[in-house]
Amino acid sequence: MQKQEFTITVYTENQVGLLNRIAIIFSRRKINIESLNTSPSEVDSVHRFTIVINEYEEVVRKLCRQIEKQVDVLKAYYNTNDEIVWQELAMYKVPTDVIAEEVKVERLLSQHGAKAVVIRKDYTVFEVSGHREETDKLIEVLEPFGLIEFVRSARVAIIKNSDGFHSKLKEFEYKEPGEHAVENEFLDKNQEVFSM
């Protein structure tokens, strides 16, 4: 087994201090978080963390259980890259005169799917959303032309094989959920783990 990129999706209550509670689960084990995003989710009042780490699956599974153990956490999932659709947003600030003078630059920008967000006399801001390799590539392209500022957002990801959290939340809200309630699913999912 090798270390690979995993995206952890955590559904939580919107609670002050929860970010720290989740972050220290990683830092305590000296695991670096590659990217972390918090946002609302498809369900009103439920928050969604998207965390990217590079680790062994075994480690990620244990981390998810530790995360799920937190009182204000509803559920934690982990996925490999081919199980998700993901994007990162990058922004680039470049001098406007360079772009105006060099046609090449404009062509390069459109090749990379960059859109202008702000155009001013002195500078222009472009944005690109995509995977890291794509946004990284544009840095290389723009650097010779005087890239003034660059910033990239955390990853946001949609789980391909997910029905969203609406029905799950309903189960959580029942005092006595059905026998196949969500919280039992880790036992089902890990048939391989519980091999006889």
């Binding site: 209550e13 009182v71 509803l74 006595e176 959920p177 059905g178 309630a181 039992n184 036992l187």
Partner: peptide, 17 residues
């Protein structure tokens, strides 16, 4: 307090296990 939706103190026992 008897129920917190994000907190399940114990699961319903699954007989197959």
């Amino acid at each position: 307090c008897t129920h917190i939706r994000s907190y399940r103190p114990k699961p319903i026992v699954r007989k197959e296990y």
